[in-house]
Design a protein around this nucleic acid. Sequence first.
DNA 1: TTAATTTGTTAGATAAGCCTAACAATTATA
DNA 2: TATAATTGTTAGGCTTATCTAACAAATTAA
Lengths: 228, 228
Amino acid sequence: MLSFTEENYLKSLFQLTVETALKEEAGTNELAAHLGVKPATANDMLKKLKEKKLIKYEKYGKSSLTKEGKKIAIDVIRKHRLWETFLFEKLEFSWDEVHEVAEQLEHIQSKKLIDKLDKLLNYPVSDPHGDPIPNAKGEMMILHQQTLAEESVGHQCKMTGVKDNSSAFLKYVDQLGLAINKTIKVLARHEYDDLIEIEVNGKRISVSPKFAENIFIFCTACKKKTNR
Amino acid sequence: MLSFTEENYLKSLFQLTVETALKEEAGTNELAAHLGVKPATANDMLKKLKEKKLIKYEKYGKSSLTKEGKKIAIDVIRKHRLWETFLFEKLEFSWDEVHEVAEQLEHIQSKKLIDKLDKLLNYPVSDPHGDPIPNAKGEMMILHQQTLAEESVGHQCKMTGVKDNSSAFLKYVDQLGLAINKTIKVLARHEYDDLIEIEVNGKRISVSPKFAENIFIFCTACKKKTNR
DNA sequence: TTAATTTGTTAGATAAGCCTAACAATTATA
DNA sequence: TATAATTGTTAGGCTTATCTAACAAATTAA
Ligand SMILES: [Mn+2]
Ligand SMILES: [Mn+2]
Ligand SMILES: [Mn+2]
Ligand SMILES: [Mn+2]
């Protein structure tokens, strides 16, 4: 049985590597920053997790998950996202409130609990932020997601999720009338200040590049397919 | 913010004193045994909780909860029992499976979560074992419960709950066809081996005194009223 | 290719929660 | 009431997870 802390390290490592699929491995400092601890602390844990054969790690090298470590990370993520969905669907939480509580709930140990929760929610495939929920076998969609920042002028797309899960960002998204499944049309990019002008709900609004980078979209015109 | 461990100590102290209402205070060894730790460990924690003004404790004396400590204990118990009810009512858990998982869930910190859960369950007043659930204000029924062991021969009563919450006992209760709200008639007490003969579901069965002591009942004939 | 910067490691502390072993106080019993 | 049994405390250790400060390796830039 792993501690909450060990589970959190595996989850972080997963998110920094496999999930984004851009990298195979993550550095000690990077992992420490992601978890909000000092590098020295992360270093100790990396040695411990290596000992337990949950990660691959060599002194002065980058770290990555072993098969077993990945399995555990996916299980924690499955629990996290199912709980977020439960809070959102059944307990009237808003999408900016669910993450904090799910951080606690994801560590509850009970296979039956999570499988019944999955059933109660009717086997959802994505959480309130559009992130994929692994199934009971640990299989999950990994989408090569495109962000609004990358979308071409003139194209129309659908919002599929958010990259930033912070409450502040999510509330801002709400305020602008954006939400998952909304149709967005990119009207213009202004060279002068880099703002992106879009149309949502029949209204024109301008968003910053920072904002746009955190909105995941699917563009039918672009025909980028999901893989794996 | 208290740790899981601190919360568990307050809950145990509550269960050993206020809840049974037979005692005002509990000893160090007793508390240690209830929590499954050594007396030396409990002793350290008692000093810490006294420091935090959550309990009254003097060297070589018994311990009791302060008003603040009691409030926290009741909150943990409220969470525990609401979660048990949720697992039982919404997730198809049997009454002998809920306790273990609720031991984990009772430490989740989110006022909104527990209030919404309460609402989802339609503000239940008792858990799957018949134990009272404190409301959002911390008010709860404290019943002077009578056990089947105390019931007079010839009397008819209704099962209201169980004292022992262990999975083994609960499964045994199930097996015998007993359950909360079942009508039980005490047919005889056999001096020879102390067995108590009862009628349930139109069938005669015999139970041991140990068994009978763990079944709470309400006897209309006896007219013992609930108080507080 | 040396120097500066970044990245990662080690040593030594601390706090929480647990333990055992030794001892002290209290309570029960002869 | 003296002694035995029970109950409670202390001292000292261990483990986990964290930190700071000092240092070492690797990478980047001059
Ligand atoms: Mn989340
Ligand atoms: Mn977590
Ligand atoms: Mn319980
Ligand atoms: Mn507990």
